[in-house]
């Protein structure tokens, strides 16, 4: 990472807030499908998931300022979102439909 880090406050913060939430929902959604018992598992999974989402969201938002620039943050987190949502929707509409 030569060349230093640009602050890019607003673009990084918006990436963290928006794409962080997206990543949180998609990754925790994957847990809902692939975790023990699958999507139809009885029990308190839906209420645990909120806490997991909050955790992922905070982590992504917290560490997103490490990206070199706002553009890099949007690019990397956007790509991660695309992959995670693709996997989630594959689970939802194809594998476990």
């Amino acid at each position: 990472m030569a060349g230093g880090i640009r602050p890019d406050w607003w673009s990084k913060a918006s990436a963290g807030a928006i794409l962080g939430l997206g990543l949180a929902l998609s990754l925790v959604g994957l847990y809902a499908y692939l975790g023990p018992g699958g999507i139809n598992a009885p029990g308190g999974r839906y209420s645990l998931m909120r806490h997991l989402e909050a955790f992922v969201w905070i982590m992504v938002f917290g560490f997103c300022f490490l990206f070199r620039s706002g553009r890099a943050a949007w690019a990397w987190l956007g790509a991660a979102n695309l992959i995670a949502f693709a996997a989630l929707f594959a689970c939802r509409f194809y594998f476990f439909a």
Binding site: G35, P36, G44, R45, H51
Partner: peptide, 12 residues
């Protein structure tokens, strides 16, 4: 409680 509920309750 099932594992999900248990973890959720512990966090709460």
């Amino acid at each position: 409680q099932d594992l999900d509920r248990r973890v959720g309750t512990v966090i709460l």
